[in-house]
């Protein structure tokens, strides 16, 4: 398989990257690890004539305790004993991503901004053409939920839920300046599914910041999939809480692999702040999360099963993180 020709640039500063992007009205993609973008390019998915590689911008590769540059390779991060020790829940998610070979190239920022996936989208040009394409690329209708307004492709990153339960933030650098926002605010849940983030034109995700509170939390991540490597999540469940004197506070639950964006369920967990999380309550909470999601049939396992597994996986994760707190 060959790649269609494109221009390739390797700026050394964020500003230079912005300038290159702005000078190319025909469109450009920022290139991080390439493990998601290049397969998509080989399949002619949403090609742009220019790639701007971010691999030579030192600032993006920096690791500094609670701040991790977006271009840090996942393989390097999982070998970072300091990071793994601080954030074991994130480390668990890291080790479950794709394969060690993919993680050698893939980056933190790339995983957060992973293209959504769907078995009508992640196909070759030939395959998609034989079906008349789809809403997400080159076509005007969705084959998963037949209509022409919204794309239902699934967010398949593992790190976003694991970081979201730690209240991680992301720093974005745009031509107009920098801003830091909560990680989950990056994702546009209200959108049409094609535009999935609130990134502004040319904006670059530069780093992820973990607040001091993140280190105080117990956290876990578990992933449903057919094979224990290679596969994207059919469901990713992250749970974190702060355990003090046997009581759980700051409980967070986040899911990936189930909707178009990662999602956290504060509306269900906030009312439980400080309440004892005994078995029945955990079961109830897990059932409430399950009731709140609507997976569609666009991954390997059927959506009704994935939905039931939300209940099981969330309950188990809660037990792992806060189970001990329920025992007086």
């Amino acid at each position: 398989m060959h790649l269609d020709p494109f221009e390739l640039h390797r700026p050394t500063t964020v500003e230079e990257a912005h300038r290159l992007y702005a000078e190319r009205p025909a469109g450009a993609d920022y290139l991080a690890g390439g493990t998601d973008l290049l397969p998509n390019y080989k399949m002619h998915l949403n090609l742009r004539p220019t790639l701007i590689s971010l691999d030579r911008i030192p600032e993006l590769a920096r690791r500094d305790g609670a701040r991790v540059g977006a271009m840090v390779r996942l393989g390097d991060l999982e070998r970072d004993a300091d990071f793994v020790g601080r954030y074991p829940g994130v480390a668990r998610a890291l080790r479950e991503i794709a394969t060690p070979l993919v993680r050698a190239s893939a980056t933190l920022g790339g995983n957060l901004l992973l293209e959504t996936r769907c078995f009508f989208f992640n196909q070759s040009e030939f395959w998609r053409a034989s079906l008349g394409y789809c809403l997400k690329a080159d076509g005007d209708r969705c084959h998963v939920v037949p209509q022409k307004e919204r794309c239902y492709a699934t967010f398949s990153g593992d790190l976003a839920p694991a970081l979201a339960v730690l209240d991680a933030e992301v720093e974005l650098a745009g031509p107009g300046g920098r801003r830091t926002i909560p990680l989950l605010d990056l994702y546009d849940r209200a959108g049409d599914g094609i535009r999935r983030t609130h990134l502004r034109p040319g904006e670059i995700l530069t780093s992820v910041l973990l607040p001091p509170a993140a280190r105080e939390r117990s956290a876990t991540y578990s992933k449903l999939r057919v094979r224990p490597s290679f596969d994207f999540p059919e469901l990713g469940v992250a749970v974190a809480a702060r355990i003090v004197d046997g009581r759980a506070t700051e409980l967070r639950i986040a899911l990936g692999g189930i909707e178009t964006c990662p999602r956290r369920f504060d509306e269900l967990t906030t009312p439980l702040e400080g309440a004892p999380l005994d078995g029945p309550r955990r079961r109830e909470l897990a059932a409430a999360v399950q009731a709140a999601v609507r997976p569609v049939h666009n991954t390997f396992l059927p959506p009704d099963y994935r939905r039931r597994m939300v209940g099981v996986y969330v309950r188990r994760a809660l037990t792992e993180v806060v189970g001990a707190t329920a025992v007086p």
């Binding site: 390739l8 390797r10 290139l31 390439g34 493990t35 290049l38 397969p39 590689s53 691999d55 393989g75 060690p100 070979l101 993919v102 050698a104 190239s105």
Partner: peptide, 13 residues
Amino acid sequence: GRPTLSCLTLARL
């Protein structure tokens, strides 16, 4: 020294 997928690595990089 790190195992890497050459099919997803741009040569110029």
